[in-house]
C-alpha cells in the first residue's frame, strides 16, 4: 500500500469540522470517488470528529490518500488523548452510548466505511482508523 498524499489537521472546536470535511471532500473527488461513497466517508468522518470533540475535547486527524495499485482510497486516523474507552466490544454495539446522543456513533460509522479499526487505552486516549476505498 502506498501513501500518495498525507496531511494532518487539528480539531478542537466544532467549527474545525467544516474545513476538515471540505478538505476530505476535495480528496475524495480527486480520486474519482462516487457521490454516495463520498457522502458515506464524509458522514463517517463527521461522526468520528464529533465523538472526538465530545469525549476528548478534540484531537488530531491524519488524512491520507492511499493506493494498492488496483484501487485508491482514503484513510483517516483520528487520534485523541481523551479518557479512552474501557469496553470496546460494548461501544461497538448498536444502541450503546455513554454521552447524551443517539447511541449509534461507532457501529453506524463502521457500516459507512470499508475498513474500521479502533484502539483505546483508558486514561491515554483513543485512535480510530477508517479506510474507504473508491469503489468500496
Amino acid at each position: 500500500m502506498v501513501v500518495l498524499n498525507k496531511e494532518l489537521m487539528t480539531i478542537v472546536r466544532e467549527v474545525d469540522v467544516i474545513p476538515f470535511r471540505n478538505r476530505l471532500k476535495e480528496h475524495a473527488v480527486k480520486i474519482g470517488m462516487g457521490l454516495v461513497n463520498q457522502t458515506k466517508i464524509i458522514t463517517a468522518a463527521s461522526e468520528l470528529a464529533r465523538n472526538m470533540l465530545k469525549y476528548a475535547k478534540g484531537g488530531k486527524v491524519t488524512l491520507e490518500v492511499i493506493s494498492t495499485g488496483r484501487e485508491n482510497g482514503i484513510r483517516l486516523t483520528f487520534k485523541d488523548q481523551g479518557p479512552g474507552i474501557a469496553n470496546i466490544p460494548m461501544a461497538m454495539k448498536d444502541g450503546y452510548s455513554t454521552a447524551k446522543s443517539l447511541g449509534l456513533g461507532l457501529p453506524g460509522t463502521k457500516r459507512l466505511v470499508s475498513e474500521f479499526n479502533i484502539e483505546s487505552e483508558v486514561g491515554k486516549g483513543t485512535t480510530v482508523t477508517v479506510i474507504k476505498w473508491k469503489n468500496g
Binding site: 457521490l35 454516495v36 463520498q38 457522502t39 458515506k40 458522514t43 449509534l104 453506524g108 460509522t109 457500516r111
Partner: peptide, 14 residues
Amino acid sequence: MQPAVAITLVELGL
C-alpha cells in the same frame, strides 16, 4: 433530501 444522503442515513441507522 439527496439520494446519497438518504442511502447514508439508512446505512448509519438513522
